[in-house]
Design a protein around this nucleic acid. Structure first.
Lengths: 151, 151
DNA sequence: ATCTCAAGGGATAAACTCATCCACAGAGAG
DNA sequence: CTCTCTGTGGATGAGTTTATCCCTTGAGAT
């Protein structure tokens, strides 16, 4: 229903939400979230292209959540990776299925579909903050806390 | 969420439900349901091993829904192909997530999960009967209606 | 300028799902 | 018995998603 990649993305964002304004290295995020390091860079890259995160190369570089990203619905993130979800179609694709010719599961699915859609539209990235990561560790900065964050 | 294979299976069963006691060839089912012929045989084979359908080889052979199959919940079919669905886990796998340490999406998901689970447990194979197949044709027997169905 | 650090990004591989091919087995017709 | 019909089942292939490798690019430190 929702790809692993999109879930990774939400997980990463949940981690970044809790560290607003703090630039964090990819490796650090990978470590903390459990997302494979190399794959994570691909995901963050896509998020960057959509201006959901901002990145900085070189010494002291890393990723930060973009200022306005807290407000966007998680649907935007999911659709970034999974494409537009064809909510209209019944789960089971049991042949033709619409309001006038409902398949046996249509009504059941319509409710579920509506709720799912509602969740994706209602919950924002900013609300992902309280995520409990598997390994609660890795909250230390891990870098010598250098001052020059001039950008 | 639910694999294409499992959806194929439900579709096939929906077709068979409407033809109780009638032995129908794989090719005929494939034609009517749109499931790829070669793949369909694999699916029906699994359904046979679970005694959900019965099969008959040779001349006049084919598949029939097993007598008691109308009563089984579609969950059984879905789990046959997709394995046990980890309903307890939150969709997003956002780290640890249970009732005591809910992730931000937990409550939303709990509702959806419950409904989905309910649907899979409540709806039976027998209720799949009114499925509208894409190509409403192919209802003709296609074989010389021979009598010997003695088995 | 040069070095090092960390993200960017293309190529490739591994894993999984979906689909096809073909030889075999069993059953009825003749 | 032999022929044909149809399901059985192993092997293989295609396609997609997930993951890894590694070279390049850009930026700050010195």
């Amino acid at each position: 229903m929702i790809s692993k990649t999109a879930r990774y993305a939400l997980r990463i964002l949940g981690y970044l939400v809790e560290r607003p304004g703090e630039r964090i290295q990819g490796d650090q995020i990978a470590l903390a979230t459990g997302v494979p390091s190399n794959y994570l860079s691909k995901i963050l890259n896509q998020l960057r292209k959509q201006r959901i995160v901002e990145s900085q190369k070189g010494w002291g570089g890393g990723f930060v959540l973009a200022p306005r990203s807290g407000r966007i619905p998680i649907l935007d993130v999911v659709e970034l990776f999974d494409g537009r979800i064809p909510q209209r179609e019944c789960v089971f694709n049991l042949g033709l299925c619409d309001a006038s010719h409902p398949c046996p599961l249509h009504d059941h699915w319509a409710q579920i579909s509506t709720q799912l859609d509602g969740m994706l539209r209602t919950v924002t990235v900013g609300e992902l903050g309280t995520v409990n990561l598997e390994n609660g560790a890795q909250k230390r900065p891990r870098r010598k806390a250098n001052g020059t964050r001039s950008r």
